[in-house]
Design a protein around this nucleic acid. Structure first.
Lengths: 215, 215
DNA sequence: ATTTCGGTGATTGGATCCAATTAGGGGGCT
DNA sequence: AGCCCCCTAATTGGATCCAATCACCGAAAT
């Protein structure tokens, strides 16, 4: 019976992401390694390695002999991220439509219903997770792993702020409709329409988020 | 007299990059941490953190309990990287032209002559470094730091193979001419022409490199 | 009163040490 | 003879420990 080999390393990383995502570690705040390590029940070594990863993703910044700080996202940063996402996601989606099979369509439809279920519960964290899986299932179809990797980084860097988007009920409703539209466009193998709905999907998101950041 | 505090951490990272770039660590090869750490005269801790960074950049891969391996780049990987570069560099260059000042033009012209000088010496490592500075000076003008970061990652991941490009004398000649053309297009604030020369610059590069990889 | 200097405590960066997992090889069984 | 299993060695992953740096605070001097 496999007791399940647990990669403690990854564990810390995901926990760290949650801390940042939920705002328990707030933007600009210093990350005290000792405290966090104790909180997680691990030593500082795996924590530091996880932080190095997040630094590479731009989620945290590092100052020599001063430590790690949760990155702050300015409004211009946010717009840059979404501009880059627009660029890269168009490419990914275009390639995805070219590759998509009927089986893929079923799988993505299933993920869409997962988002719907999560929305019903109202748990923001579950919604963001499901939403992410839905979109990246599409991106993965591009069969461009590096492109997907870059997109993951961009998504990660704005996760904190995007969660506020899901916190608002009307947005949650609209998302479901937009997902359906995306699914329709995919089924029709219509590149232009798929891209267009992705664009509006993003635009709606960035609008609310930038409003929140400004305040 | 400031003895200058040396960030040992970065030191290891750049050394590692050189090892990979020069092929002393060959693609696919395992990285034995103890050996390298001793070779660098440091402990394994900073080495592991540097490796985590490189992993994030896709320069090395990591297998649990088996360690780090220098990443291998397939021909399809290479084409993906260049496709993404094309996408992102067009964006960067376009923004750069909008922002560029006369002072910037002078600085970039200076960097171009640095490339010329390095080419004269024939030292491949110096050429790649100078070439990189030239191009990223342009990219930086976009004033989109995240975009520049992504481009750095993409450049890093193919550095190993690009150096073979510089090893061939005729390529070195052509590069200088192309740099001049880019400089001209920038001076004229001509977006289309600047983008086009960047494209041909890249296409020439990818052609030779992919030929090398195939063999 | 304000500014500057020095000391002390806290926190990071790096080294050493220990446990856990994997790969490789030799021996035994079928 | 071939295959499988177990045992050992090597290497990684994580914990603990030590040194170096920075921030904070108070005191003294202008």
């Amino acid at each position: 019976m496999s007791v399940k080999t647990l990669p403690t390393q990854e564990e810390v990383l995901t926990q760290l992401r949650v801390e940042i995502l939920t705002g328990r570690l707030q933007p600009g705040q210093q990350i005290v390694q000792d405290a966090l390590a104790e909180k997680f029940g691990v030593s500082r070594v795996p924590l530091r390695e996880a932080l190095k990863i997040l630094e590479g993703e731009g989620q945290v910044t590092h100052h020599l002999h001063r430590g790690y700080f949760v990155a702050e996202l300015s409004i211009t940063d946010l717009h840059e991220v979404y501009r880059l996402r627009a660029l890269l996601e168009r490419e990914a989606v275009t390639a995805a439509v070219a590759n998509i099979t009927d089986r893929d369509l079923l799988a993505i439809a299933e993920l869409a219903t997962q988002v719907r279920k999560a929305t019903a519960t109202g748990e923001v964290l579950a919604i963001t997770a499901a939403n992410r899986e839905f979109h990246f299932a599409i991106f993965e179809l591009s069969e461009m792993p590096r492109l997907v990797r870059l997109l993951r980084q961009l998504w990660d860097s704005t996760d904190v702020y995007r969660s506020v988007y899901f916190a608002q009920a009307p947005n949650r409703e609209r998302i479901l409709l937009e997902h359906d539209e995306i699914l329709n466009a995919l089924s029709a193998r219509n590149v232009a329409r798929t891209v267009r709905w992705h664009d509006t999907h993003r635009d709606n998101s960035v609008a609310t988020v930038s409003a929140v950041i400004s305040s």
